[in-house]
Write a protein that binds this DNA or RNA. Structure first.
Lengths: 355, 355
DNA sequence: GACATAATTGAAAGCGCTTTCTGCGAAAAG
DNA sequence: CTTTTCGCAGAAAGCGCTTTCAATTATGTC
């Protein structure tokens, strides 16, 4: 009767799956032998193995991974903590992480949008027992917070997160170097007044990029006065910041936006004001998101190989899980280099080069 | 001694976290009371609760979610199966799923790139015991496969996957309607020879979009001969297909690409051939990925509200998990409507309207 | 053929947690 | 003052699995 019911509403009822016990009964062996036969651990007579395999097949047995990892203390899953799931930066990042994870047979448990420390804490706790390690991009959270929230329970690799004391392994972008190189490039293009639209406040990336801007300006253009407008990495903030810059008595000749989306918003504002990019104002970004190629004029930007960054972080974590001693407080810096396209004006003579 | 070691290499050693047993000992109560106090289930005297909370705080106790869900049979996690993690379509989709999941306090376990049935099977099995339900976008897998791989073990919602017998709940795009409307729009623009670059073979979306193309053409332009070139949803395939179409004796006046990336590749090829889009050849896409707005000319396309699609699917699944009886074999179709931008030429008179 | 040795197998002990179920003392009812 | 009820705490039974450990059987040696 019950069986009939089950069969007739297969995709409604949450009837419990068949367990190892059922397989054992079906194969007339012990649970232990089923486990051994299925996992290939320990010695099992050929005949028994076949009987187990057949029984498992017949009953359509699927082991409960949750229970499995409770015993083995291995989940083959990596937790990924991101601040939000928005914008191509994160997409590229997770794509890189995913591809590296896949090639190692690891799953990804993602958790996003932790607006405050409480939510982050919650998310971190929810990971315990479900993952073997953590990959965290938490701009507004410091190592101390992590330390006291999960005191070494889980191996963790930080992605461009503030960790002054170098307690955790981290891989980060060479924000300073990239920004420096970009400003230098703008100077080389001949621009003498270069403004900066900064990123979200209280963010390591924001600070380092701004630092690169100031440093390069001081070095390359000692007489120029830095001009900085606050943004927040969004297209909209770029739009508004550009409007603000255009209202200035002395309009800057070039704008270095803290990221590509900001630069894109910036370009819209400039074009709407009836001006040309790069002829009237040059605009450059940071990140090299896929869209940077498609936008017109194609965006000159700092390529950080976002997907590689994610992949490197995962590799780092994965090997740290295998051999905990390798996961020391190493900080890996991935390089960032200028990609020249059309929005900076460097290619003005060689038009049509496209892409 | 051991403790000293632990402290000094906090992020190396994988010392087991503190368990509910430790908290119980520390608070001088039973494990049962700790559980009750922490979860707020069952009655606990105020004094005991406070003692437990204090002990948990002192020991920095984090419950093991894996063990928890083994008992409760609830993981508060949704499994997401995607064919690959590439392109903005998937990004938008997962963004929608993620935002819906977050607002319901659910986690996401993602699994991608299942190239063959074996891998898919593997991935499906790895989900059992880790998730409460499944969201699957598996173009080359049919309901029968799913049925026999996990026979109703998990509630599942299909995303534009072939499910002829309507065994599973599914939410899909109105591919046919969108394609039909787009071709109709092109006819309304005055084009009389309209080609189609199809998508990846053996894909439901591909087939339905092509079907929409044929139907609209037959209806709106009975005398026109359909021209179809095989693509595979990539930018490159669009590029190549366009070259092929341009070599035709009678060059088509408009091209309906099966998706936006194909259309973008298509535009590149046309421009490289020294022709103008839309003046010489109009190009339109399908999906409305974020980049469609930024590409020049801005892409006329069929908006499928990808993120909404993902969110709807998650809602559907979540409510199906709560009340299994609601998760019948309902098929939800999300509408797809034409978004007119510049690449179709409809706006030629009103230039500069942008974005 | 009797013994030591090796190969298999099953019973049982958990992994860390929740949840009955039982028992206790206190409050309410008689 | 006794009996009934009730609120609360702890013991213990698992969830589905792996993994000792001891028991069993098969194999090899003298």
């Amino acid at each position: 009767m019950t069986d009939l019911l089950r069969t007739s509403r297969v995709c409604y009822a949450r009837f419990m799956g068949v367990t190892i016990k059922d397989v054992a009964r079906e194969a007339r062996v012990s649970m232990a032998s089923v486990s051994r036969a299925l996992n290939g651990t320990g010695a099992v007579r050929k005949e028994i193995r076949e009987r187990v395999l057949a029984a498992a097949e017949r009953l359509n047995y699927v082991p409960n991974s949750g229970a499995q990892s409770l015993m083995t203390r291995r989940t083959r899953t990596i937790g990924v903590l991101l601040p939000r799931f928005h914008g191509e930066f994160f997409f590229e990042l997770i794509r890189g992480i995913d591809s590296a994870a896949r090639s190692r047979g690891l799953h990804l448990l993602v958790s996003t949008s932790h607006n405050d420390a409480g939510e982050t804490r919650q998310a971190l706790r929810a990971m315990v027992g479900r993952v073997d390690g953590l990959l965290a991009l938490l701009p507004h959270v410091d190592a101390q917070f992590l330390h006291q929230t999960l005191r070494g329970t889980l191996p963790i690799v930080l992605l461009s997160t503030a960790d002054i004391e170098h307690v955790y392994a981290s891989v980060r972008i060479d924000n300073f170097g990239g920004a420096y190189a970009m400003v230098k490039h703008l100077v080389a293009c001949g621009y003498r007044s270069i403004a900066h639209i900064s990123g979200q406040p209280d963010n390591v990336d924001t600070e380092e990029r701004a630092r690169g801007y100031f440093a390069a300006l001081a070095q390359e253009l000692p007489d120029a006065k830095p001009i900085v407008v606050q943004g927040d990495f969004t297209e909209e903030s770029g739009y508004k910041a550009a409007q603000e810059l255009l209202r200035l008595r002395e309009r800057p000749r070039a704008i270095f936006a803290a990221n590509d989306m900001t630069a894109i918003g910036c370009i819209s504002a400039i074009m709407e004001a009836g001006l040309s990019v790069p002829d009237d104002v040059a605009v450059v970004g940071f990140d090299d998101i896929p869209t940077a190629r498609f936008v017109r004029p194609a965006l000159t930007t700092v390529s950080v190989h976002i997907a590689d960054l994610g992949a490197r972080a995962l590799e780092c974590l994965a090997s740290g899980i295998e051999k905990p001693e390798t996961l020391s407080s190493i900080t890996e810096i991935v390089p960032a280099d200028v990609v020249v396209r059309d929005s900076c004006g460097a290619r003005r003579q060689s038009r049509g080069a496209g892409v």
